[in-house]
Computed example of a mutant assay.
Amino acid sequence: MTSTARFALTFRDAVESDVQSLVELVESAYRGDASRAGWTTEADILDGRRTDPEGVLGIVRAPGSRLLVAERGGDLVACCQLEHRGTAAYFGMFAVRPTLQGAGLGKTVIAEAERTARAEWGATEMHMTVIVQREDLIAWYERRGYRRTGEMSPFPYGDERFGLPRRDDLRFELLVKPLG
């Protein structure tokens, strides 16, 4: 368990009893009208769900995977997935409560995720995929030291676990940051 005074955050690994709260947090950050309170919404490009209890539980239980939870005053305010992939770590399922976005909380969470990946797994790089149409989000990651690779992967059209696309040109780009 790690704390940071700037936001009085406590970090810990998610446990099975956190699953429903984590689903609600992720959904609130990315889908529906509630997500519009923050800037990370995908409501204009995707409908449907962003995740579900089975998906979150799978991450919590998976070997080589962690779901890092950030709490403030006992309230779950942010989370992110870390997955060990050889010399790299994959960063995903990043969510900050919409009403708390834009105040530096996300910067603190991603810095803790990077620290954790280096310390726990000796990771030398962090990888993530971002929908290319999310230019504002990609720019935010670039300001944190991530670089666009030009390496694209298709959006999983037809798989409702990833949402219901509102457009037909979605795809993901790999972003990479050296961890040193």
Rank of each mutant, 00 (worst) to 15 (best):
S17P: 07
R61C: 11
S28C: 08
T2N: 09
T51N: 04
T129K: 13
V77K: 08
L174S: 06
F11H: 05
A123M: 03
F162D: 01
E54M: 06
D136H: 12
D75A: 15
E27L: 02
Y157M: 03
G122V: 06
Y146F: 14
I138L: 10
Y30S: 09
L22S: 10
E16F: 09
A14F: 07
T10Y: 00
S3A: 10
L25K: 06
L179F: 04
A78T: 02
T87G: 11
S65Q: 15
V19G: 04
T10R: 15
V96I: 13
R85H: 13
T10D: 13
E54H: 08
D18L: 01
R97I: 04
E42D: 12
A123E: 05
T99Q: 13
S3Q: 13
D75N: 12
R6W: 00
L100E: 12
V19Q: 04
E151Q: 14
Y30M: 08
L105E: 01
F162A: 05
G55K: 03
R144C: 14
A29F: 05
I45H: 03
R12H: 01
M126Q: 06
Q81Y: 02
R6Y: 00
T149D: 09
A14L: 10
A119F: 02
E160M: 00
M93L: 15
Q101C: 08
R171T: 11
C79T: 14
V15K: 13
A111H: 09
G74H: 09
I138D: 04
L164M: 09
